[in-house]
Design a protein around this nucleic acid. Structure first.
Lengths: 110, 110
DNA sequence: TCCTTATGTATAAGAATCTTAGGTATCAAA
DNA sequence: TTTGATACCTAAGATTCTTATACATAAGGA
């Protein structure tokens, strides 16, 4: 995902936020979008992405819809109602995390 | 450490930064300082802290010095030379992480 | 006096998240 | 025809954390 360990635990937040902006997306599309938005800084590996998507689906935060495009399978994911709520929570947690870490590494600004 | 999973992977950065500011600190002191600096938001558990300190020591980033205060054991940790270098790296990675995450969750500002 | 809280360190079992490495399949381009 | 892009998937292992437990001293209240 990056040589930095800080991203550990961030994947769910990233997925939910992208789906919050894009209505529906499929797995491969998510990996490409992340690479693009972060200018290559962050690459989501499949081994992390697919289990994460399946877990979010199992938790009822995502709905899935299978499609066939160019004779190839695609699984479109979209937020459920509780998925939308959870997205808000996750974004608040991210903002809080950043604030807390800045208090720790830059206490002069706190 | 917090109900938020985002902190996973951040502990090393926190320890190194605190030792970079404070010359030497002992484990329990680190937990208290973090609680104080984050106004209770972040509580470092012992089960996470001590293994992390031992690992940093094993990697040569920290030196240890045992002391006895009020008949109780204390282990003071301080940065080695390579620990100081690694602190710079970790802080750069944190800044990069924050920048990347903001590009993802707030693309309008990017 | 006894019990709790604070101080101080430590480890071990298990959960959660990720990496690494594989597997399957279609399509376009070299 | 082989490579690269597209598209999905899983399993073994590494890493980091939580939870629970253990040991020990000191101070304070019931």
């Amino acid at each position: 995902m990056s040589n930095s360990k800080l991203y550990k635990g961030s994947l769910t937040t990233i997925i939910l936020k992208l789906l919050n902006e894009n209505d529906k997306m499929y797995g491969y599309e998510i990996t490409q979008r992340v690479k693009e938005l972060t200018k290559g800084e962050l690459k989501i590996t499949e081994g992390a992405l697919y289990p994460a998507l399946h877990k979010l689906e199992a938790e009822g935060l995502l709905d899935v819809e299978v499609a066939k495009v160019d004779n190839r399978l695609r699984k479109y994911y979209k937020l459920t109602e509780s998925g939308t709520k959870e997205t808000v929570n996750k974004l608040e947690e991210l903002a809080e995390y950043i604030k807390t870490m800045q208090a720790l590494v830059n206490p002069k600004l706190a």
